[in-house]
């Protein structure tokens, strides 16, 4: 693996891949440029689109770091699989946890609307707040 011709005549290792300087500096410049872009988009009101745009730019930056700085473009594909696989499992955890978040919301909040709690607290002199609070499980 990884025995590439190095026409520049410089020393090169038997293993691994030597990334040309222009790739490294180019990747660094691209990352700095994308940082400026993402800060700039912060000041533009795109409504709901602000978060996806920021995350998309972050994904591009992460890809540049992984492929160029971390050599994955020239590395064994299995190492790329390890990185992408770990990301997929984080997304799986996010997806299932996210699905569960609002699963019981109706049960919890319909029984004890926040406004009812507030009214109860305000109208009942001496009412133990802890007791009222405990009914909504400390949520909200």
């Amino acid at each position: 693996m990884a025995h590439h011709a190095h026409p520049h005549g410089e020393a090169h290792p038997e293993v691994g891949h030597v990334v040309p300087v222009k790739y490294l500096v180019g990747a660094g410049a691209a990352l700095l440029f994308l940082t400026v872009i993402t800060v700039a988009t912060h000041y533009v009101d795109m409504g709901e689109a602000n978060l996806p745009v920021a995350l998309a730019i972050a994904m591009v930056k992460a890809t540049v770091v992984a492929l160029i700085f971390m050599h994955l473009r020239w590395d064994r594909p299995f190492n790329l699989l390890v990185l992408v696989g770990s990301g997929i499992f984080v997304l799986l955890m996010l997806a299932f946890a996210g699905m569960d978040v609002n699963q019981y919301e109706a049960t919890i909040f319909d029984g004890n609307p926040t406004q009812v709690n507030q009214t109860l607290q305000a109208n009942a002199p001496g009412a133990p707040l802890a007791q009222v609070k405990s009914t909504n499980g400390g949520a909200n």
């Binding site: 020393a11 290792p13 490294l24 660094g28 990352l31 700095l32 940082t35 800060v39 770091v65 700085f69």
Partner: peptide, 25 residues
């Protein structure tokens, strides 16, 4: 936060260059 992002990116670049310099003696 933006300055810190740039600091980390530049240090990543110098780290990648360090690997290259190690590889090229």
């Amino acid at each position: 936060g933006g300055i810190n992002t740039c600091v980390l990116i530049i240090s990543s670049l110098t780290m990648a260059l360090a690997v290259r310099y190690a590889q090229t003696d």
